[in-house]
Amino acid sequence: MADTPEPAERPRRSRAADRILREAMQLFAERGYERTSIADIQAAAGLAPGSGALYKHFPSKEAVLAAGMARFMEGAERARALIRSVPGPADEALAVLGRAAMQMLADDRDVLRIVWRELEHFPELRDQVREERMQSSYAAVAEWLRERNARGEVRVEDPEATAAVLLGSITSFRVFQTLLGEPPARLEDERYLRAWLRMMTRALGIGDAAGGVGDG
């Protein structure tokens, strides 16, 4: 079978375009898409008022939003690569994946606000984000569980449902914090991650499944 060609890299944006995109996404998250004008974005990006300089890089405000969502979706491939390649025994790998998920969601805090509050007005973009970033991430975790189960490292009856619990619990924690300004029960990340890892390790039978020491 011939090797599958690598996907073409997206063209690199100029520094000005990156600055416009960064500032626009922050404004969309803080003020909302409709309440953010082209003039607001240009001012935040340090462009001359009334110059129309934004249009040298993006054809419209909606194109700026779409570019921000495209960058968000690109993160899914990085997540899938990590899930496929994370080494070590299941408990160590699970800790790496949990910490990485928390960090990625923290890095995407502005985008999460936009996804939850703004994309209902852009159904095609919403559906694309749902499939290419969110559903694909759950599918990758389910595949990881399926492979570890086949190797006897975990015990999983329903990989898809278990993936929804594993990743969904972290997503819920971070979304709560992002939308409401503080985490559930005002927990620090490390405290939450320790509890998450203890519960998930036991639920997956890690150690017991591999013939290791159980909880006793």
Rank of each mutant, 00 (worst) to 15 (best):
R113Q: 13
I83H: 00
Q103C: 05
R78M: 09
A67C: 02
F72D: 07
E74N: 10
A101G: 07
G68E: 01
A90T: 02
I83L: 02
R99C: 07
R78Y: 12
R113A: 14
V111M: 15
A79V: 04
M104W: 08
R117S: 10
R84Y: 00
R71T: 14
A67I: 05
V115L: 14
L112G: 15
L97T: 08
V86S: 06
Q103Y: 05
E92V: 06
A93Y: 05
R78A: 09
I83T: 07
A70R: 15
A106I: 12
R99F: 05
P87S: 13
M73W: 00
A90G: 12
G88I: 04
A76Y: 01
L94Q: 11
V96W: 02
D107W: 13
M73D: 09
W116G: 10
V111R: 13
A95F: 02
W116R: 12
M69I: 13
M102C: 06
A81S: 11
D107R: 14
G75K: 02
L97G: 05
R117H: 13
A100N: 09
D110V: 01
M73R: 08
R80T: 01
L105S: 14
A101F: 12
A76H: 00
M104R: 13
G75T: 02
A81H: 07
R99L: 05
M104H: 12
W116Q: 15
R113D: 07
A106P: 09
M73I: 02
E74K: 03
V111L: 14
R109G: 14
F72N: 01
A76T: 00
D110F: 11
D108F: 09
A76Q: 06
R117Y: 03
R80S: 00
A70I: 06
W116V: 11
A81R: 08
E77D: 12
D108G: 04
A93C: 14
A81N: 08
R78T: 06
L94S: 05
A81G: 10
D110L: 07
S85D: 03
E77Q: 04
D110K: 03
P87L: 06
L105E: 06
G68N: 04
P87C: 14
A90P: 11
F72V: 00
L82K: 00
L97I: 10
L82T: 01
S85T: 04
P89T: 03
M104Q: 13
R113M: 09
A106T: 08
G75Q: 03
I83E: 00
E77P: 02
D91I: 00
I83Q: 00
D107A: 15
A101S: 08
F72L: 10
R113G: 15
M104G: 11
A106S: 15
V111D: 08
A100I: 02
Q103G: 03
L105D: 12
L94K: 06
D91A: 10
A81I: 02
V111P: 05
I83S: 00
V115E: 10
G88R: 08
I114K: 09
P89A: 11
R84S: 03
R78Q: 10
D110M: 06
I114N: 02
R78D: 11
A67W: 06
A93Q: 09
R99G: 13
A79W: 05
D91F: 01
